[in-house]
């Protein structure tokens, strides 16, 4: 009996796979981050790849089309798919302008296979860069500031 219930439940759940899902409205506050550097650790630990230390790299990665995320204050990462009508999530101008900024976002959350996806309908507040960690880490990566600019 339990097996039958599980099977039915599984089929119902998977009937929706590949189809549009209902989102959940949320309000979340956090930093717009470069998710490759954050998730992969390629440039260092998570505290080094946020904020002012990592700002130039965040610009590069955003312009380079790497998905941006919103790193919430509780550590949850939301993959940002759209911001205030702009669906240009692969290198768009809106996300580039918000690189490293702390924002309060109002939008729709879609959860799929362990990742959180966010459609930001409204940037309620934009506090600019609030994590000032350049004294702790210097520029991340070190060559972010070229020799001739030092």
């Amino acid at each position: 009996m339990l097996r039958a219930i599980s099977l039915a439940g599984g089929l119902i759940a998977l009937a929706g796979a590949g189809m549009a899902a209902e989102g959940t409205r949320i309000q979340v506050t956090g930093e717009i981050i470069d998710t490759w550097c954050y998730f992969s650790g390629v440039m260092g630990g998570p505290d080094a790849v946020v904020g002012s230390a990592h700002h130039t790299c965040a610009l590069w990665c955003s312009a380079g089309g790497i998905p941006v995320g919103l790193l919430a204050e509780d550590g949850t990462v939301y993959m940002v798919l759209k911001i205030e009508g702009s669906a240009d999530s692969a290198g768009g101008d809106t996300q580039l302008k918000l690189a490293s900024h702390r924002i309060e976002a109002d939008g729709m959350l879609y959860e799929r296979d362990g990742l959180n996806y966010l459609v930001v309908e409204n940037v309620v507040t934009d506090d600019g860069i609030t994590v000032q960690n350049h004294e702790d880490y210097g520029p991340v990566p070190p060559f972010a500031v070229p020799e001739g600019e030092r």
Binding site: A21, A87, D88, S89, Y110, Y117, V119
Partner: peptide, 18 residues
Amino acid sequence: LCELTGDCPENCGGGDRQ
């Protein structure tokens, strides 16, 4: 975005979307 929300432009958004 199409997969999750049903907002589906032609050609997967032409390079602008993830």
